[in-house]
Amino acid sequence: MNKLKFIALALASVCTLSLSAQVTYKASYFGVKSDGSTLNTRSIQKAIDHISEQGGGTLEFYVGRYLTGTLNLKSNVTIQLHEGAVLVGVTFPYDYTAAGDTKAIICAEGQENIAVIGKGVIQGQGTLLLGNVQTQINKGNLKESVAQASPALISLKNCSNVKIEGINLQNPCGNVMVYSDCKDVTLSNLAVTSRQTANSQGVIFSGCTGFSMTDCYFDTTGDALASAGTSTNVNISGCKTPNGKQLKAKK
C-alpha cells in the first residue's frame, strides 16, 4: 500500500515535472524589450525567478537584441534563443556578478536542470566592456585584476544536468565558458568566436563529473579548451578550431 502510494506519488511528480518543463514564457510577457538599448537585467531575472518558482519552464527569446547584465539561471529553467535572438552583454563593468570566481552574462551556482538552447547568440561586446573595465581599474575604483573583472559569457559552478546547445557565443570580455564542479554538462553544436580580447579561452572546466562536448567550433584568441583540476567522465568529440585541429581532452 505504502509502496504503491509512493510509486504513484513518484509517477505523479515525474509527470508534473515533465509537464511543467513544457511551459513556455515569451520574454515580452515580463516587459523584456528587444530594442538593443533597454537594459533588461532585472526583467529577465524576474522572469527566470518566476519560472523557477512556478516549477520550471522555458523562457523564449525571439529575434532581437536583448541588452543585459548578469543573469542568474535557476533550477529547471531553460533559456531558448531562437534564430536571430541575441543576448547582448552591457558594457558597464558593475552590471556583472560572479558564479564562483568568474563573472559572466549567464551565471548559476548550485542549480540543476538548466539549459541554454537555440540558434541564437550570446554576445559579450568584449572590446567595449574591456575598455571600461580597464578604465575602472586604472582609476582605482575597481580593485580586481583585469582577468577577474572581465566577464565570460557563461559561468556555472556546482550545477548539475546542464545543457548548452546550438547557440553562437561571440566576443566575451574574458573567457567564453567556465564550468567548475558541475555534474553532467552537455555542450553541443556551439559556434564560438572570441577575437576581440587577448587570450580569451573557449571552455574551461574543472572538477566536473560528466562533461560532454560535441560538434563545436572554436575561434578564440586563447586556448580553445583548457581543463584545470580533475574532471571525470569527459567526452570531447567533433570539436575543431580554424586550422582544422580536433580538440582533445588533456589527460
Binding site: L39, F92, Q136, N141
Partner: peptide
C-alpha cells in the same frame, strides 16, 4: 568616473550603487 552614462537612456543602477 565610475562609468555612469548621462544620456537619459542607459540604466546606471549598478554603476551608481557601486
Amino acid at each position: 568616473d565610475f562609468g555612469a552614462v548621462a544620456d537619459g537612456i542607459a540604466l546606471n543602477t549598478n554603476t551608481i550603487q557601486y
